[in-house]
Write a protein that binds this DNA or RNA. Structure first.
Length: 600
RNA sequence: GGGGGUGUAGCUCAGUUUGGUUAGAGCGCUGGCCUGUCACGCCAGAGGCCGCGGGUUCGAGUCCCGUCACUCCCGCCA
């Protein structure tokens, strides 16, 4: 007989009745009836109820067993009588009649219980992560993550992609997030950096002729944490393809994500053809570039109704800012329709919410008995109010809210108002995955602080219109072959068709104010590669952690990460970051220069 | 770097508004009883620097100041 088990704890069924079996696992729960004692033995695969009576010589050992001890049980599989069958348990039709029980290892009183998994403080969960991981929900999340990654590998390989590894110790890159640095022992004063993403490597893989690359790639960025963002490290499904246009990338990636969400999304509907929404259209309809399309509300420009109208606040606002660039300098009034929000109570609640958000308020009209009500309607007049109502297809019992000002300043607030209205009125669906592509991102944007044009996303993206556009157009008008995938309001990934031509690269960096020497110094290797026959190529990099979060229905990344750090970027289980010995520092030619408060 | 929230038993929380006797409950833990439970049940018990430091007061879990920890957000995240 095997030293520890003939069956796992999730395996025994009715057809095993009568068999002599051996199972091993953790003591999940003990129920002591005095004359009868039940032990639920748990392993990765499930739970098996074991039972023993006081007449048994092994009873004392069984009685002493405590939660999370590891035990081995030998016994016979018995059928449970009709009224004692537990239908909640896959093994609930049988139980193991204990013949002998061995304690394989013990545990003291637990710092956090495994059974029942009540809420526990995160620092304790992280310090005792090995216990936390035994708990059903987290254990299942981690297994789901493993299944998702296996499925991704299968789908990518089936799609003709090859998985390659890229370096972990690499060079610091000039822009982007803060790097994690690793001092070099052999080169005093020099440092490696951990890659923020294998961006340049995957492009080099294309230039090297490997055609289709993917990797479950670790990425390292020394940035502060959020609930949905680990400090330090995360994973991307990194993808790059040669001889492709934007459409080819979409056709390769869309089925992978759709299939993944259909496989693991618990049967919730998944968008079939992902709609493509240009960046500026998304900003106008939703106020942001990662719209949650489960929310049906679309905003629209209602400025023409207010210009010169009796509602003086908006009318004068529109007058005052009516010269400069659209979006940046011109004032507008946006309408947010709210079907079913047509009561003074709801409108007032939204108004106080807006004030709590630091806004002066949130103007509204609500419709009842065939007419518009509220201060704005009064000042606007019945004719204009009815035009608005028809234009927005609103009826009695509906409302419309207004935000006014310069779009670049209020868009973010309008987006939050749209989300809140959708949720509060239960217009936003909850049981589906709504995907879209956001396309046509601007290549450059205006950096208000530095007073200069800056890359708005990836400096390696190909501008639409190529060199000619760079030479002839207003830089802020130029679009890039740059795209995002958004699901349920979560930005899952961004990608681009890359700039594979050195002269366009030079021009693009020139527009962003980097001279050729800087470009040469920072991206010399990349530039050199581009001069030796680079294929047109492009790719994308969906965030694995965020995909798993969506599929596990959690908003906290630590619920889908096996060994996460806390928000202060500490690993409480392993004790990282930690101090190192003087000898290690000497070898690395590093001397500490600690801030004053920590010197003592 | 900045802002908000929280901090009371091993854990989840009540008590703080309005300062006043011995700081409570549930879960967990320990012991006892219990032959069909599966969130077993019943009885008893242990367990508290009320985050820490200072202040106001006859008196502070409660009010004030500072500080620390955790958490959420902003900055940051090509």
């Amino acid at each position: 007989m095997h030293a520890y088990r003939t069956h796992t704890c999730g395996e025994l069924k009715k057809q095993d009745v009568g068999a002599q079996v051996r199972v091993s696992g953790w003591v999940h729960r003990v129920r002591d009836h005095g004359g009868l004692l039940f032990i639920d033995v748990r392993d990765h695969y499930g739970l098996t109820q074991c039972v023993i009576e006081p007449e048994n010589a092994e009873f004392a050992k069984a009685e002493a067993a405590r939660a999370e001890w590891v035990v081995r049980v030998d016994g016979r599989v018995d059928a449970r009588s009709g009224d004692t069958v537990n239908t909640n348990l896959p093994t609930g039709e049988v139980e193991v009649r204990i013949a002998s029980l061995e304690v394989l290892s013990q545990a003291p009183e637990l710092p956090l219980p495994v059974f029942g998994e009540p809420d526990y403080p995160e620092d304790i969960r992280l310090t005792y992560r090995f216990l936390d991981l035994r708990r059903e929900t987290l254990h299942a999340n981690i297994m789901k993550r493993a299944d998702i990654i296996a499925s991704i590998r299968r789908r990518m390989t089936d799609g003709g992609f090859f998985e390659f590894q890229t370096p972990i110790l690499t060079a610091s890159s000039p822009e982007g997030a803060r790097d994690f640095l690793v001092p070099s022992r052999m080169h005093p004063g020099k440092f490696y950096a951990l890659p923020q993403a294998p961006q340049q490597f995957k492009q080099l893989v294309m230039i090297a002729g490997f055609d289709r690359y993917f990797q479950i790639a670790p990425c390292f960025r020394d940035e502060d944490a959020r609930a949905d963002r680990s400090p330090g490290e995360f994973y991307q499904l990194d993808i790059e393809m040669s001889f492709v246009e934007q459409e080819d990338v979409f056709n390769a990636v869309e089925p992978v994500l759709r299939g993944l969400f259909e496989e693991f999304g618990g049967g919730h509907p998944v968008t079939q053809g992902f709609p493509r929404i240009p960046y500026w259209r998304s900003m106008r309809l939703y106020g942001c570039d990662k719209p949650d399309l489960r929310n049906p509300i679309e905003m629209s420009d209602a400025s023409h109704h207010f210009r010169g109208s009796g509602f003086k606040i908006f009318a004068s606002l529109l007058d005052k800012h009516d010269k400069g660039r659209e979006w940046f300098d011109n004032a507008e009034v946006w309408a947010i329709p709210a079907k079913g929000g047509g009561s003074r109570a709801f409108c007032d609640r939204m108004n106080s919410w807006a004030q709590g958000e630091g806004q002066p308020g949130l103007g509204y009209i609500f419709f009842r008995e065939g007419e518009g009500a509220g201060p704005i309607a009064k000042n606007l007049g019945e004719t204009v109010t009815q035009q608005l109502r028809q234009e927005l297809d609103l009826h009695d019992g509906d409302a419309v809210f207004f935000v006014a000002g310069v779009p670049k300043d209020f868009a973010e607030f309008a987006a939050r108002a749209r989300v809140k209205i959708g949720e509060d009125l239960e217009l936003t669906a909850t049981d589906r995955f709504e995907f879209c592509w956001i396309v046509d991102f601007p290549m450059f944007e205006w950096d208000e602080e530095e007073k200069k044009v800056e890359f708005s996303h990836n400096p390696f993206s190909m501008p639409q219109g190529g060199l000619e556009a760079l030479e002839t157009k207003d830089p802020l008008e130029i679009l890039a072959w740059q795209y995002d995938i958004v699901c349920n309001g979560v930005e899952l990934s961004s990608g681009a068709i890359r700039n594979h031509l050195p002269e366009i690269m030079n021009k693009a960096f020139e527009i962003a104010g980097y001279d050729r020497a800087v470009l040469e110094e920072k991206f010399g290797g990349m530039l050199r590669a581009l001069t030796f026959g680079a294929p047109p190529h492009g790719g994308i990099a969906p965030g694995i952690d965020r995909i798993v979060m969506l599929l596990c229905g959690t908003e906290n990344i630590r619920e889908v990460t096996m060994f996460p750090m806390n928000q202060q970027a500490e690993d409480l289980l392993m004790g990282a970051p930690g101090e190192v010995s003087a000898r290690q520092l000497r070898e690395l030619h590093v001397r500490l220069n600690l801030p004053a408060s920590e010197k003592e």
